[in-house]
Design a protein around this nucleic acid. Sequence first.
DNA 1: AAGTGCGCACCGT
DNA 2: ACGGTGCGCACTT
Length: 331
Amino acid sequence: MSESKYREWILDTIDSLRSRKARPDLERICRMVRRRHGSEPDRTCAELEKLIQEQTVLKVNYKGSISYRNAAKVQRRSRKKDDVSLTTAAARRSAAVEEASHSDLSNGDSAFGAADPDEDLEGDTSMTMDTDSNPDEEGAEESRDGQDRPSPSHAREDASVRAVSAPCSPSGAQPGTGPSCSSGSARDCAASQKASGRPNSLPPSSPRALPHNDWAYDSAASPVEHQHPGMQRDKAVDTKPDVPSRTASPCAVNNVKKEAGHKVEDSGLSSDQLVPDSAARLRDEVKNGSDGRSPAFSDNCTFKKIQVSYTASDGSLLNGDKGEEISVKKE
DNA sequence: AAGTGCGCACCGT
DNA sequence: ACGGTGCGCACTT
């Protein structure tokens, strides 16, 4: 029961933030929800996460920071070719979603989203949805409620949505100073966002340092587990294009592999990057594979960032700051 | 201090 | 040209 309530609150909040022209990021969302309804950020976080998994809320990486979108409101206007693929996409989507959720639960996805602005990772439109199919937002939401019905429409901006699992570190993380875990986690989330989201500054060497550096934010999924620190780092430094994203997620591969087959064509599709974890990953993988080369650069950056942020939130508060610094430095 | 409103620049379509 | 997004600032509570 509280679930639907939360959904409502969260969506409402996102909405409100948007209308205020403020970025609907975790921090703001949590704060606002708490303010308005007194719900603890922690809980909000969790609920938000759920919504993301249901795709009621889309987690998007926009301009280098994490944003959340009300899926019901995100619509794409002109997207003809997509429409075609949308159909197929929809099908996949559901599959993907399911798998995603499964894997997510187990944390199957690794943080290698490997999205790179350069290459237009955004090929990941797979999950784009027709909002047309949404009857009305409210109603839709309601109905959507119970099942993880992929329903989102999809965002047009250049943002990549990926993380579906944990917007914030699930349990542990929490600021030593903050006694209340709730605020702690909220902050935590925010922190991680910030840490990871601050990016933008692409290295000069980057061919097209877009102001919008939409690196993939695969993140959420894994606070700790995968992520091979050493390798990414090296790579980042290196300009070596290959391996990175691909090695990335064995789990993901497993999960998605099957789909990979038909997805390939899609990849070039659009610049929209809304993608469910698995899908995204999958796509990336496919892409990389087919291309034979991968956009190592931004990839790595992304990587680093993610990792860093998680590390920070994850455990050592002490290190948190350091982590950030490090990432900066690297860049 | 925190929340809010909004001008503005940016970007993709 | 248009619409979406979010920063940054000023205003309100």
